[in-house]
Design a protein around this nucleic acid. Structure first.
Length: 299
DNA sequence: TCCCAGGGGCATC
DNA sequence: GATGCCCATGGG
């Protein structure tokens, strides 16, 4: 039976660290999309037009998911959302085998043990977030996200704290460039965001539509047809939202910095040089990218 | 002050 | 298809 919105438990797969995932969610950045404590994360999840606020913690080897407010949503849909957030469906064993076989990268299997690809299940949010993050430093990117979410996102209050869901395409379509400029969005970013929202509203793009495409290449092509979405944004979105395991955000500065530090690659590596590092990780490129990003941060 | 940031579009050759 | 320029602003 599919119950409505009470608490439930999710089994934890092998090679999973809740602590490591929480650390990644927090990372010293001011992320408005969730609240992280030592032992839990509280976050709104969107299912269709509904938004449910969930608190997730670890309890006796399982994830405990508790309903904290918002709309009542089918439990199965919520399970799916939480599984997507922590990428619980992935089997990391093959990726770890490859990591351990690499002299310079083997340390990551131990130091970042159990880190999962933290997802952005909502494709619209994933694309917007990557557009916001283009070419500006991360802390500024988080401030911009906070401002647009506070302006247009849905709000749920719980425990004297206001939680925000990322605005729907319909809400972003209603915004204007003139509204976003004072929030320090560049004119270009504002245009891109509203344009992408229009594409979702008109049905020009959707997650289901992308999932139906036969190849990653076709998905990238579809995404890059949107103004403001280049190769980097397309791959980043595929990685975070659709969990495409082979996607690598080519051109990513952070990725290059990590490879320069660990693999002595040039600051601007060629496609060939990148390929040489990624070759042994075929089928696990997204996870290698995630762990390389992770290596940039000091705990 | 200068350079860089989890890029992308566009013109030009 | 490669290269150069522009966009915009916080952070170091």
């Amino acid at each position: 039976m599919n119950k409505l919105a009470p608490d439930f438990l999710l089994p934890i797969p092998p090679i999973f660290s809740f602590r490591e995932c929480l650390w990644f969610l927090d990372r010293n950045y001011d992320d408005i999309m969730h609240r992280v404590t030592e032992t839990s994360v509280t976050k709104p999840f969107r299912v269709g037009k509904k938004v449910a606020l969930l608190e997730i913690s670890e309890e006796e080897g399982k994830l405990l998911v508790q309903f904290r407010g918002g709309d009542l949503v089918e439990e199965n849909d919520l399970r799916e959302q939480v599984i997507a957030l922590f990428d619980l469906g992935a089997n990391l064993a093959p990726f770890y085998e490859r990591l351990k076989a690499d002299d310079e990268l083997a340390f990551m299997a131990k130091e970042f043990f159990g880190l999962r690809l933290i997802g952005i299940p909502d494709l619209f949010e994933a694309i917007c977030w990557s557009i916001i993050g283009q070419q500006i430093n991360l802390s500024f990117a988080y401030s911009l996200k906070r401002r647009i979410v506070e302006l247009a996102g849905e709000k749920i209050t719980y425990d004297d704290h206001v939680f925000h869901a990322f605005p729907t395409p319909a809400r972003v379509v209603a915004l204007t460039v003139e509204q976003l400029r004072p929030l320090q969005f560049s004119g270009r970013k504002a245009e891109y965001l509203i344009g992408v929202a229009n594409a979702f509203e008109s049905g020009e793009i959707s997650k289901a539509q992308l999932l139906a495409l036969p190849t990653t290449e076709a998905m990238v092509q579809r995404l890059t047809s949107l103004r403001g979405v280049g190769e980097w944004t397309a791959h980043y979105s595929l990685m975070k939202s659709l969990k495409v395991p082979t996607s690598v955000p080519y051109g990513d500065v952070g990725l290059y910095n990590a490879l320069a530090a660990l693999k002595k690659l040039p600051k601007r590596p060629s496609r060939t040089e990148l390929a040489s590092v990624f070759a042994p990780f075929q089928g696990h490129e997204a996870y290698l990218t995630l762990y390389l990003w992770r290596s940039l941060a000091v705990r």
